[in-house]
Design a binder for these strands. Structure first.
Length: 1004
RNA sequence: GCUCAAGUGGCGGAAUUGGUAGACGCGCUGGAUUCAAAAUCCAGUUCUUCGGAGUGCGGGUUCGAUUCCCGCCUUGAGUACCA
């Protein structure tokens, strides 16, 4: 079957990329070339991109970098005979659409839809081989139906430490019914009362629900959250950067609120352990390890003297227990008010007040200031029974460990500084170590002394011994602590997944699966209500009718059969934590993905995306997948086998140099003049040069004579103020298009009176001189005016050039600057390639036998390109192609045997031109599944080698010798050569190193 | 502070079981073609006092180091009173 009309040759005599690319994009769409089947004889391969949030600004050239890399890999795998799943979709719930809705009143669904259209058009024009039939959108009810379903499953589960997995809540209920909770080892809230089977049976239904909530994997609890007043919502820990919100940089405060939380802490150990089995970069794994923050140590209980109170502390150094000279509690610690003595009460209260006033941010940024106060109370050392003063200090965090520390000043720098500051003794328990200047925090070379039964032991031995002795006393045990906290899952926003939850007597109830999805209600405004409820509080139709099984008007709420619905929505990471499963079976209406599809595709073989998701999305996804495995919904433990972070593409900003006049009179005045100097002068005029003097005179003349501005008659100095201008107005030679700049809608008026002084020092009028801009490499962003739009690049150079150039810029994982000027290189390469196949009279390729030289070129290209793709070194492949085309052109190669396989090699990188030439060569079907050429080493065999002959390691000349020459013969040949004799000038070399096939080195 | 990356021409970068540093491309210079421009083609392009020197700096191992080892410096990213 002929799938595509062969092009009329005449039209394509020259490389017309716009026409070619449009043609093949249409062809791929029409023939569904990249549609993946869920059953196939071929082995599966799943390549995934982190799906984008469709923002209103559209794509810039930095966004598709990862998509191009994954597309090359996908196309390569198809050539290699794999059934490839390469889908794309949109993470379409999120703050920007909602903020826009708040400002304009436009429904976020509408703006999201529009933005997606732009994204789709931009993605299509780059020629990606996505299977769009599997597209997902997290904001689509048919998708979030299953996000809600997973939430219900989490609610219906608890974590059993004994079986080390999540189980249905029913198993917990039956344990309670048969034996109470005494023997249950679960990950749950602290301080759960213990009860027997008969007590459980006697509990009211409400009481049972309250207890179960403390065990569920998603639970409702009053927690201290990060509240962001400006955004009107809570934020997760990973959404806060340097104490302010990641989005917008707004202030964040601590606040107690009733919120849904995810018991991710149950999975801390498995999340940590699983990192060993996946192929991610070490730095990414390291971030996750730090975030999970496992510390091994002991929990130790200190009795408070003259009271029944006990202070539990967590320490990683139980071996230093005899070095304790004081204890420190966090100011927020519950015990503080109970133990403080009357004498110290006022001072302690005052201190707590001042620390509470300090925001989280102040406390974080101000690490140097040591503050604290003595409580007046003493604890008792578990072994020596000596009294230990109890202090409070804000260097101890309420949220970590137990909120209290046993302070060992000789072994911890913070304790040391605190002790020095308050004149607390610093006992030394390390043999032969000087602690007069600072604490000795290392665990190496430790010999414990002054420590009773621990004397003479190393860190390891002492730790073991101390724990076992504490256990004997009943005052401690070995313990592992994690930094990872449970994740808050409620957001006070509109544009997110609604919870499938209604409330009976204040207790949450799940809506039955058959009624999902629970769709977002309509609201008048997207702001919180006047009473501070989330935006869903504005909905009129937001109540659950348990009889009808539908959402009804709020006025029907009777708390008998109709109940209020949850007003919070889910956070951004809800939908992205499982989307990779949905792609496997995107249309399924019965389950989140069918069993067969899940079994076939299993996991993501290659995942490419940005490193900013290191501790958010990538951790939550792993958590959900482990949970889903525990409950038998999926069979995999880790979702992403191999992961690569693409580096950021930086923008090259364009700068113009405005001249600033500083008056030299007493009241220094800064005047931004209308003069702009070209790049060359931006540095020259800073010195007290002739140029500067001339320019000063010119400015003086202009303002005094033409503008009648007498201020410039006073003496002044000049300096330069760089100013960003849009890179669109700069050509590849850095020349500024002044007319376009002056006509710019946004800031053209700022330049209306501008006087530009060109590279040759002339005031620019017409084309008498050119103005060159300066550069700065920085993040690509709208505010820096350095955003390069891929639409313009595709228009001017074509998608194939864009794809190849993005790869050519440098290693995938490194950050690198974009410079549009460089694209002419790959564009020129594609033109040259085209000419290799097409001449003035049409197709040049013939059945002629290839030369040995051409075969060598082809096969070394096959080898290199294959190695490069396998190791994700796409940048070096592009050079390899350039070299191959340069060589084949020089060889005047026209042989189909060479040029046909070359197209397959190139097709993952430049699919449009490859398809077109493939078609011209007489193929009726797409190149996309043509088998990858097979490398044959026999074409690379050489008979001679040009030996570099070096003297003391420096190469002086080369000598061509047969490959099969022996070491002895090579030495003889080299040593008698006239150039060797000339180099030696009669000296006798000490030594001659001959490495056959590599090098000869003469020493002496 | 800690952790992880990375430092090579004017620029992006290439080369590591240790073996001709600067591939490929941009830019630049000169030339051809053209009425001219664009496009295309050809030649050159690390520095140099023409001896040499040279991969952030200082040492070391080696016949030989961008590559391995030790000690520094710089830049970037992440993280941070985590007991």
């Amino acid at each position: 079957m002929r799938l595509c009309e062969r092009s009329t040759i005449r039209r394509f005599m020259t490389y017309n990329f716009n026409e070619i690319e449009k043609k093949w994009q249409d062809f791929w769409a029409k023939s569904q070339t990249f549609k993946a089947k869920n059953d196939s004889e071929k082995p599966k391969y799943y390549v995934l991109d982190m799906f984008p949030y469709p923002s209103g600004a559209g794509l810039h050239v930095g966004h598709p970098l990862g998509y191009i890399a994954s597309d090359i890999y996908s196309r390569y795998k198809r050539h290699k005979g794999f059934n490839v799943l390469h889908p794309q979709g949109y993470d379409s719930f999120g703050l920007p659409a909602e903020q826009y809705a708040i400002q304009t009143g436009q429904h976020p669904a509408l703006t999201t839809e529009e933005n997606i259209k732009t994204y789709r058009r931009q993605l299509d024009q780059i020629g990606f081989s996505f299977d769009w039939s599997r597209e997902v959108r997290t904001s689509d009810p048919s998708y979030y139906k299953w996000t809600q379903w997973i939430f219900i499953q989490l609610f219906d589960s608890w974590y059993n430490n004994t079986s080390n997995k999540a189980e249905s809540i029913d198993t917990l209920i039956s344990i309670f019914a048969s034996e109470g909770n005494a023997n249950v080892d679960a990950v749950c809230d602290d301080h759960i009362e213990s009860f027997s089977a008969s007590e459980w049976a006697a509990f009211s239904s409400e009481k049972k629900q309250e207890i179960l909530l403390k065990y569920r994997l998603t639970y409702l609890a009053e927690t201290e959250v990060n509240w962001c007043p400006a955004l009107g919502t809570v934020l997760a820990n990973d959404e806060i950067v340097n104490g302010v919100s990641e989005r917008g940089g707004h202030m964040v405060v601590r606040k107690k609120m009733t919120q849904w939380s995810m018991r991710i802490s149950a999975y801390a150990e498995r999340l940590l352990h699983g990192l060993n089995d996946i192929d991610w970069t070490e730095s990414l794994k390291e971030s996750q390890r730090n975030w999970i923050g496992k510390s091994i140590g002991a929990q130790v209980e200190f009795k408070v003297q003259n009271s029944e109170f006990k202070i539990p502390v967590f320490t990683t150094r139980p071996d230093t227990i005899f070095g304790v000279s004081f204890m420190t509690l966090a100011p927020e610690h519950d015990l503080v008010e109970n133990i403080v003595t009357d004498a110290q009460k006022l001072e302690v209260e005052a201190y707590i007040k001042t620390t509470a006033k300090r925001s989280e941010r102040d406390r974080m940024s101000d690490v140097k200031t040591i503050t604290g106060v003595f409580t007046g109370a003493y604890a008792e050392h578990p072994f020596s029974k000596e009294p230990i003063p109890i202090w409070i200090g804000d260097y101890v965090l309420a949220g970590y460990g137990t909120g209290a520390v046993m302070s060992v000043p000789c072994g911890d720098q913070r304790d040391y500084d605190f002790a020095k500051h308050f004149n607390i003794p610093i006992p030394n328990i390390f043999e032969g170590i000087d602690i007069s200047e600072e604490a000795y925090a290392s665990k190496d070379n430790v010999v414990i002394s002054n420590s009773d039964f621990l004397n003479g032991l190393s860190y390891k031995e002492a730790t073991k011994k101390a724990i076992s002795e504490l256990e004997k006393l009943g005052q401690g045990e070995g313990k592992i602590n994690y930094r990872l906290r449970d994740a808050v899952f409620s957001r006070q926003r509109y544009w997110g997944e609604p919870f499938p939850v209604y409330y009976v007597d204040g207790l949450p109830q799940m809506i039955d699966k058959q009624y999902l999805p629970i769709r977002l209600p309509e609201v008048e405004k997207y702001l919180p209500t006047e009473t501070g409820e989330p935006p869903l509080g504005r909905a009129d139709v937001w109540a659950w009718d348990t009889q009808k099984g539908e959402v009804v008007k709020n006025e029907n709420i009777d708390n008998e059969t109709v109940f209020p619905l949850e007003l919070n929505t889910m956070p951004g990471w809800a939908g992205s934590s499982w989307y990779f499963f949905r792609y496997m079976d995107a249309q399924n209406d019965e389950v989140f993905a069918g069993e067969e599809a899940l079994e076939y595709w299993k996991d993501v073989d290659l995942y490419i995306g940005g490193s900013e998701h290191a501790t958010g999305h990538l951790l939550y996804s792993r958590f959900w997948v482990k949970f889903m495995k525990d409950r038998g919904f999926v069979s995999i433990e880790e979702p992403f086998k191999k992961l690569i972070n693409q580096g950021m593409i930086l923008g090259t900003s364009a700068l113009v140099y405005r001249v600033v006049a500083n008056s030299e009179s007493e009241e220094t005045e800064r005047v931004y003049t209308d003069f702009f100097v070209s790049r060359k002068y931006s540095e020259l005029i800073l010195s007290d040069s002739e140029v500067a003097k001339k320019l000063k005179q010119r400015i003086r003349d202009y303002y005094i004579i033409e503008k009648n501005n007498e201020n410039f008659s006073k003496p002044f100095t000049i300096e330069i103020s760089p100013l960003h201008v849009k890179v669109d107005y700069v050509n590849p030679s850095d020349e500024l298009n002044i007319d376009d700049l002056k006509n710019d809608k946004e800031f053209g008026k700022d330049f209306r009176d501008a006087i530009f002084i060109g590279e040759n020092g002339h005031v620019i009028e017409g084309d008498n001189d050119t103005y060159k801009v300066g550069h700065e490499v920085e993040k690509m962003s709208k505010s820096k005016y350095n955003v390069v739009n891929p639409d313009a690049i595709c228009e001017q150079y074509g998608a194939d050039s864009l794809r190849m150039y993005e790869m050519f810029l440098g290693p995938l994982e490194q950050a690198k600057p974009w410079n549009t000027a460089g694209i002419s290189g790959v564009n020129g390469f594609l033109k040259k390639l085209w000419k290799l196949y097409m001449g003035d009279n049409g197709l040049k390729v013939t059945e002629v036998e290839p030369t040995a030289e051409s075969l060598k070129t082809l096969h070394k290209t096959i080898k290199k390109v294959e190695e490069d793709i396998e190791s994700f070194s796409f940048n070096t492949s592009v050079s390899t192609f350039m070299i191959a085309v340069n060589e084949l052109t020089a060889q005047k190669c026209a042989s189909k045997e060479i040029l046909e396989p070359l197209l397959i090699l190139l097709s993952p990188y430049a699919p449009h031109i490859a398809e077109e030439l493939w078609n011209q060569l007489g193929h009726d079907e797409s190149i996309s599944t043509a088998p990858f050429p097979i490398f044959d080493a026999k074409h690379l065999v050489e008979s001679t080698k040009k030996y570099p002959i070096s003297f003391n390691g420096k190469v002086k000349f080369t000598l061509e010798l047969p490959m099969d020459m022996t070491k002895e013969d090579i030495e003889k040949e080299v040593m008698t050569h006239e150039k060797t004799l000339a180099q030696l000038e009669g000296r006798t070399p000490k030594k001659v190193i001959v490495v056959p096939g590599k090098i000869v080195n003469i020493v002496g």
